[in-house]
Design a protein around this nucleic acid. Structure first.
Lengths: 294, 294
DNA sequence: TTGCTTTGTTACAGCGACGTCACAGCAACC
DNA sequence: GGTTGCTGTGACGTCGCTGTAACAAAGCAA
């Protein structure tokens, strides 16, 4: 390649230093190498880049102009190098991320993995309580949960808005409605989550505001277990709206008495948990615009 | 070399075209090459430059920034290439240059040769009359002479000022003076040049203005013959002041009656004689600042 | 003038970047 | 199921970059 970085850098350094030998020392290569690089360039274009003057090499007018262009190239290249190096310092490492709901946290994790492929990611899933405890005990570096408690020990950033919705099997009459009321729900076999679930706390608050909290037909620990029970027609359940990307077999129904009481899916970590990788995760969350669930 | 021109060009072209295959077509290489170039760069820095979106490759934020820097590099490199190419078109060819006096014409020729080493130069020397005839008959492409006639057929550019001076051997009493008068010169054995010489015409005009033209002791055709005769003590001769870089054995004496009647050493050619090489010679003459005679 | 140091040129060998070729796998479309 | 387009992998060839060795030329000090 005739106008390579190496050749232009040789020319530039000879112009600055006044000799092939001095340029070789500055560039950390041997003097015949510099001689060959410069002369190969001159031969290929049939030009003269340097003239001897009082025993020193000084650039010709053409040589000087070439050096000017070479300097601009070198500046742009240094910018590119710094860009890559600064990002490259994030290239290696590991992070443990706790997720209450699969979505939109998992979408964020996927985006983070794409941006930082060299970072090893461990995902810890579980209930709101379990994930909160993991963060507090350093079992997870960072987590994504709805309704993160106002605790000074945490730093946090907003990820997405969400709300609890009822889910009914497609075969159910409710599936043809656009929303559902608490009274309608009380008439159905309800499937609850265990008490530690943030979903469950939101559901109980909702019923308490509009009368008594009904007894569930079924109580399940796991989110996917609840999903399968609804799909199977065992009853009506509750989920965070975007808590899963799964949508087959059910209809999501906003609950009138929730009064659009949305909450935040929040990324949070202990304030004392720092580091470039955690910072990068927070930064990505702050700018995240993934279609939650898509 | 990690940040080579080739790699950055590959990244830039993929960003513009949306696929490795399209970039390969644009760059005139094969698709595996592009794939390898981009991925080698990504692997070396542990970064991700592209993401897939609806079947196309789009640059990540980092990838876009890298492309910006790569573009600046490419611009600077294109400038450098144009610089070298434009000069390189002068790299080959030939020119015949006529010289009346050796200096300052020969210094100009030397500078031209340094700037355009690939141009083959033939130098034709001779009397003012011979060189003028050579230009008119296309025997010389361009020439350097003093007192170029005002002839519309020529284009010309000024090179240097000069005047005719007397030269005396160092052993001569005149050699201790700073200048000489026509009367003093009439008392000496004078060595003239043949009538075609521009030097000789100037000398005769000078004598005619201040009395009669003396008969010479000697008349010689060749400039160097005259020089040797003076050095040998045969008499006093006349030269253009900077007509030769040779200075040993003689003293140059301005002639009072010349009245500082300097003339111009002029570069000239037939107006119809054009071409890049001749134009470049004129251009160099217009900017020439060689120490005439040095 | 001699000896030493520094600089530059030439020839050659080795390594790695760039590039092609052959091919397999995948996705979209008909 | 076949066709088209794209991507990734491995093997191989070419050429630029680099160092080493040998030598020549220039500069400098004694």
């Amino acid at each position: 390649m005739s106008l390579s970085n190496v050749r232009l850098e040789a020319v530039r350094t000879v112009a600055e230093s006044g000799s092939y030998a001095a340029a070789a020392r500055l560039l950390g290569v041997t003097q015949p190498n510099i001689s060959q690089l410069v002369r190969a360039l001159e031969a290929e274009y049939g030009v003269r880049l340097f003239a001897r003057h009082e025993g020193r090499l000084v650039p010709t007018a053409l040589g000087q102009k070439l050096c000017d262009a070479a300097e601009r190239m070198a500046e742009a290249r240094d910018d590119a190098e710094r860009l890559l190096q600064s990002r490259s310092s994030l290239a290696r490492g590991e992070i443990t991320i706790g997720l209450g709901n699969a979505m939109p946290g998992m979408a964020l994790v996927a985006a983070f993995h794409k941006a930082y492929p060299g970072v090893s990611i461990r995902v810890e899933t579980g209930s709101h309580e379990k994930i909160t405890r993991a963060v507090l005990s350093h079992g997870a570096d960072v987590a994504v949960l709805p309704e993160v408690p106002q605790d000074r020990r945490f730093r946090r950033t907003h990820l997405a808005r969400t709300e609890v919705v009822a889910i009914a099997p497609l075969s159910h009459a409710l599936a043809r409605q656009r929303e559902v009321t608490a009274d309608q729900l009380r008439r159905e076999p309800l499937i609850f989550r265990a008490s530690g679930s943030s979903t469950q706390r939101a559901v109980e608050r909702m019923f308490a505001r509009s009368g008594a909290v009904p007894e569930p037909f079924l109580t399940l620990d796991a989110r996917d277990g609840l999903y399968e029970a609804v799909v199977s027609g065992l009853g009506v359940g509750f989920l965070w709206r975007d808590g899963t990307s799964r949508g087959d077999g059910i209809k999501r129904l906003p609950i009138v008495e929730m009064g659009r009481a949305e909450t935040h899916e929040t990324v949070f970590a202990l304030s004392e948990t720092t580091g470039k990788i955690v910072d990068a995760f927070f930064d990505m969350a702050a700018h995240f615009e993934a279609a939650a669930g898509g």
